[in-house]
Design a protein around this nucleic acid. Structure first.
Lengths: 219, 219, 219, 219
DNA sequence: TATGAATGAGCGTTCATTCAT
DNA sequence: CATGAATGAACGCTCATTCAT
């Protein structure tokens, strides 16, 4: 109970502050219009003129706040990217590791649930991020170098932890990490991007997915 | 043994014939230049004038062969899409099902290996396909309706087959299918799109992945 | 005398307001350049890029004010079309009819003089209008349905009026109208379009033309 | 009677020979397709590629027979232009003049009827000619200098002839010519170009028109 | 700070014409 | 003689960005 709570806390992100209070009303409208357009038609097929129209703002106003169209993209996408995998980067992650086996399942469950809330809230932006990562070096390097690697390191630590306890099959750590990550990632991708229109029983589905991972990694 | 061979045959695609012999030399150069550009900068950030330049062809020549830029995209991407998941659509898939447990692993192994060859050969196009599916209704509906659903039906048949034999945990069929599909899909995505620069031991990795699925789905 | 004056008033058009005051300086230059080009080389042989050059304006500027090249054409041509035959549509035309025979000649004289002033002022545009009517449904239907038919009705009323007074030969009304209209129209066409370079004695020519009509329609 | 006949002969044009026998089957199809397109959408909005398509001929074939698109236009339009006013240029026109007053009406009637047949046969080409004359110096100068002036001279001779006989009002010859020419021209223009869809009683209408001219020119 | 008119480079596409087959 | 692939200039139009107000 107390554990649950503390974990929830652990991974919580104050989403209200993705973009700070410093955004003016017009800026907010610009950002919202841009998110809408970018996710609908893609970044490079969206025109600043239509963004301005949807935001009910003069075209020049966009460029007062964001020097270029690309800067607007980055302003939208980087905070989400930073926060998306934030829970894995938290310092006291280690504490979690010191807990017992059941808690590993709980840990996975909690983290996935938490990320689902986050993704649901920022689904459009997540889509934009996935779309644009391949074409913008800043995004890609930030994602891979800063975020991907950190997450990998954390997950590696977890896996080693459980492998040492003899609870996980002897497989290359890298594979174990990848299997966990891609299973969860695959689930989230399917759930929110590929087949969002299926009628998902989220509770059930999550349980199954975690079970599948645990089973798969067992000896 | 003989089985292996026949299966290999079963799933083989004559990649040389993705685009028939009917392509002229210039057409080939156009298609190649377009593939290069689309995968580098994305479809809508690629200009027909630069494609022409790279193909060493007059811009008008592109439009003699493809009425529009979009038609060029589709000409590149649809054959790959059709063939990508073709092995799952083969009629005598059912025969495979009548075989024993070990053969299921073999079946998965064979199919993944085969798809790896295909993907490696057409990696750029696969990337383009993934990028553009969200923005082109023709692509999306073709992918989901015609291909996705067929594959799902086949995989469902396989899963039910093994569930009936009592070899698979009692989980919702849909989940079982999704877990298999997303695990393999997740592996391929990671292997070729997200982290292609890792130094992968493909043989080992595949074995682990299959094992993981089999384990995960066991009771 | 006083009558003459009031009639002159009756048919006067404030040509200064063909295009309202709302046109900016650049817009005026665009419109003028377009009129020049369209009348010189025809609408579809005039390029927006050369119009821009002649107007000393960036090409994009044209499209800020007129969504398409065709919209530019219509913006130029429709006000002239509306005003060209406007005098025939005036409500109190009937009053004119209640006057005596001499006044009919005066009426024709006044109307033709008035239209000559208008045509001289907008000659280029009238040429464009005549050229483009066959190829633009909006123009043709507007000209025939809205304007042509109204004018016809008015002229018909006049002719019937004088036929009832026994002053005109018994001919099919339609023919009488056509003869009047085509005689005047033929004169204007010859005067301004076909042989504008003849040295015309306008005063004399008009008198002769009216006399010709009056004579021709007499019993 | 014999007179009538000889006049009919006088003005007859062997329309079959507008374009000589030397046209190959493909050339005929090209010319026909071009006439269709030019009159539908105008010369400069018609593309050689669509003309080729409609003629069921390769695009290159057009340029084998006509060096340029413009040459094709001229090949279509000049024979019609030459023949359109041909009757006025005939040498023995003078003979006609030596005849009496009734014959003048007959003369006008015969000439108009004859030209109606010609126009009906080549209506599309006449339309093209009218459209394109303002934009092609060759056409305009040929029309004005060679044809217009000749016709004018002939008509002038006729008018002077009748004025000398005291049968026509003393008006400037130029005006008299113009009135005749524009009345007939105005009729033909209205009949075939402006309001071809009215249900015309050609016989009646022609009689009225001629009467109108005769009346108008009487003292 | 916010505007929106103005820009001119660049877009996808069409064009009349050429020429090897 | 006929073809149609190839051309590259020119087309109408859109774009991200600038800047005077």
């Amino acid at each position: 109970m107390g554990e649950q709570e503390s974990m929830e806390e652990l991974f919580s992100t104050n989403e209200n502050e993705l973009y700070g209070e410093e955004l003016t009303a017009k800026q907010k409208r610009i950002v919202e219009a841009a998110i809408q357009m970018f996710s609908e038609k893609g970044y490079s097929s969206s025109s600043t003129s239509e963004i301005a129209k949807r935001a009910n703002v003069a075209e020049g106003t966009i460029f007062r706040h964001y020097k270029t169209k690309k800067e607007l993209l980055l302003a939208i996408v980087t905070p989400v990217m930073s926060n998306l995998l934030a829970p894995f980067i938290i310092r006291d992650l280690d504490k979690v590791l010191s807990q017992n086996y059941q808690c590993y399942e709980d840990f996975l469950t909690a983290i996935v649930k938490n990320r689902q809330v986050f993704i649901e809230k920022h689904l459009s932006i997540v889509k934009i991020l996935l779309q644009e990562i391949p074409f913008h070096d800043e995004l890609r390097s930030q994602f891979i170098d800063r975020i991907g690697k950190e997450v990998y390191t954390r997950l590696e630590a977890i896996v080693i932890h459980f492998q040492e306890k003899g609870k996980l099959v002897e497989m290359p750590t890298q594979s174990a990490v990848r299997l966990t990550a891609t299973t969860i990632g695959g689930f989230l991708l399917t759930r929110y991007i590929l087949l969002p229109n299926n009628d998902w029983n989220d509770e059930e589905e999550l349980k199954t997915t975690i079970h599948f991972i645990m089973n798969g990694m067992k000896a």
